[in-house]
Structures are given as C-alpha cells and as structure tokens.
Design a binder for these strands. Structure first.
Lengths: 170, 170
DNA sequence: TACGATAATGAGTAGAGACTCATTTTTCCA
DNA sequence: TGGAAAAATGAGTCTCTACTCATTATCGTA
C-alpha cells in the first residue's frame, strides 16, 4: 500500500470516529471527508460503503476495548473495566448505535478479555462464582447504552455501578 | 374534532408504533401512511413533522408504562416491572432509540410511578433503603437498552436481572 | 529522473424521503 | 337535505446524501 494511501486511511478512520461519535451514525460521509481533509471519493475508495466505514471504526473501538481489558486483571480488574466503560459512554456518544453493523470477530475478542477478568475476580473471591460471562457482557452493554442515552453524571455512575457491583459480589 | 379525523389519528398512531417499533426510527413516513390506510398528506396534517410523530408515540409508550407501573405495588412490584420491561424490550425494538426526541412530562410521570414502586419495596424490606430513584431509573433504561440491542433470550434475561436484583436486595 | 502504477479529486448522478397544496371528499349542523 | 367548514388526497417539489468516474496528481522504482 502506498504511503499516502495509508496516511489517508488512518485520517479517515480518525475523522469518522470523531464525527460518528459526536453526531451519531446518521452523520454524512461528506462531513467525515471534510474533517479528514480528503475528497469524498477518497473515502469511498477506502471504504466502498458507508456501512463498511461504520464497521471499520466499530471494529477498532472494540479491539481497543479488548486490549484495554487485557491489561487489567486481579481482584478488581472487572470493576475497573466497568467504570472506565461507563465513564467513556457517559462522555461520548459511542457508536454502538447499531446501524445494522456487526463485527463478530471483534466482539469475540472482547468477550474473551472480559471472561478473563471475570475468572480472575472470581478466583480472588471478589465476585460470586455462579455468575457467567454472558450476563456480565449483557450488563456491560446495558450500562454502556444506558450511560450513553442518559448522559449520567459522576454521582449517578457511581451509584448505579454500586448496585451492580453489590449484585456481583460474593 | 371531526369523527374521521379522530379515527385517522388513532390509526396513524397505531401504525407508527408498529412501523417504528419494527424497523426503527429511520423507517419512512410513507410506510406509516400505507399501514394506516391513509394518504401521506393526512399523516402530515395530524403531525406536521416526523419528529412530532415520533414524540407522540414515545409519549404514548411512556404513559402506558407509567400506567402499568401504577397498577403494580407491594414487596416485589418493582421486580415485576423490571421483568416486564426487559421482556418487552427483548422482543421488540422499542423506539427509545433517541432521534433527538424528548418528552419531559411523560418521563416525569414514569419516574414518579417507579419511585412509588421503589418506596413500597423498601417498606416491605425487599430492597435496600440506601437505593435512590435515579439509579433505579438508570438501571431500567440500561437493561431495557441492553435487551433491545442484544435480543436477550429468556435465560439471559433471568440471569442478568438476578444480578441486579441481588444488588438491590437488602 | 522518467515513467507506469496507484491514489486523489470533485463535479455529477440517482434515489430516497420529508413535506406542500390545489383539488376532491366527507362530515355534521341548521 | 343543503351547503359550508373540515379533512383527505396524492402527485409533485425540494433537499440531502450515498455513490460514480473521467481526469489529475502522487508515489515508488529502475
């Protein structure tokens, strides 16, 4: 891949994340191009379809989360991850507003990372042993969407997570 | 209001709920008109803007929930309400996907109804007394969005709610 | 540096969907 | 029942945006 192509692809991804994170998935591709400083045709050369672009940034977002989760661990790694996710979602309007996009592989990776955190928390006795990965993922998605929707302030984040943590506690 | 006008307004609301609940808020106004069996102009006579239509059905949905909540009560009324909401959200794609619509009054009513349920549950000793209405609403919204997004099956609904109920328990 | 291959450009196309309005139909009261 | 007000109709307008493609610019190699 030529150097300018690679540079532009990264610029486009960054711009797309910024734009879709702010204005939602219905923002126009032209706005992405403008922010990236490239022509509209360039965006479509790299991502033939708007959905391809959405899928690409969603994949990157999920991969970043999985990576983040992988650096955590220990007795309260899961709790830290919950807090980070909610904090981010409350601040931004993350792009997890469907649009029909799906990225199975990236979701799988994140799932495994979260599974790892859960196992460690259970081993440390911080979390009940009859809790399974699927409901933990479900809670993460829920609380992420909720914070996103409602723009929770710090106090509300803390109190809501307190209930969930109490529910997970041994 | 003339009889035909009232009849059509109700038909339009029903059709809109059906269509937007199924295909999401980006479904076209024409599809609503078609399902309602009226011309497109009639829809715009009753609801001058698509957002007005969305706001109207959101308001009706919230009012219905508030009414539902008001009929519940006792030690586990709150739990029943949680279960119903999640069950509905998992089945349908409820219209709470923003679209910039807001209906403060309807939200207020629902909030009061939920507040009542919380008070009763706390009086009965089913729920901890240091839990406040805002985080209960936040959990409801979260879990509703989560179920909506993920299409939870019955087992996942049960397990996820079990964690939350444990967190709320005295 | 020259040149072929790769990429960028941006005006243009096409289609979808929100909204309008002159005309026709329906309601309902005197 | 007659007729005026209210409502319904639906073809048409207008804007917005995803996507194309002939042309121009840039890159990397020999």
């Amino acid at each position: 891949m030529r150097a300018d192509a690679q540079r532009n692809q990264e610029r486009i991804l960054d711009a797309a994340e910024e734009v879709f994170t702010r204005r939602g998935a219905s923002a126009s591709t032209e706005e992405v191009a403008r922010l990236a400083g490239v022509a509209i045709g360039t965006v479509f050369r790299h991502f033939p379809t708007k959905d391809d672009l959405l899928a690409a940034i969603l994949k990157r977002l999920l991969a970043r989360l999985a990576e983040d989760a992988a650096t955590l661990g220990g007795a309260d790694g899961l709790h830290v991850f919950f807090r980070r996710l909610v904090g981010q979602a409350a601040a931004k309007r993350t792009v997890v507003d469907l649009a029909g996009v799906s990225v199975p592989a990236a979701v799988g990776q994140l799932g495994e990372a979260v599974g790892g955190l859960l196992r460690q928390a259970q081993a440390a006795g911080t979390v009940r042993s009859d809790v399974h990965p699927p409901e933990v993922m479900a809670l993460l998605v829920s609380v992420c969407q909720g914070a996103l929707q409602g723009g929770w302030d710090a106090k509300l984040q803390e109190r809501t997570l307190a209930v969930i943590f109490a529910g997970l506690a041994a």
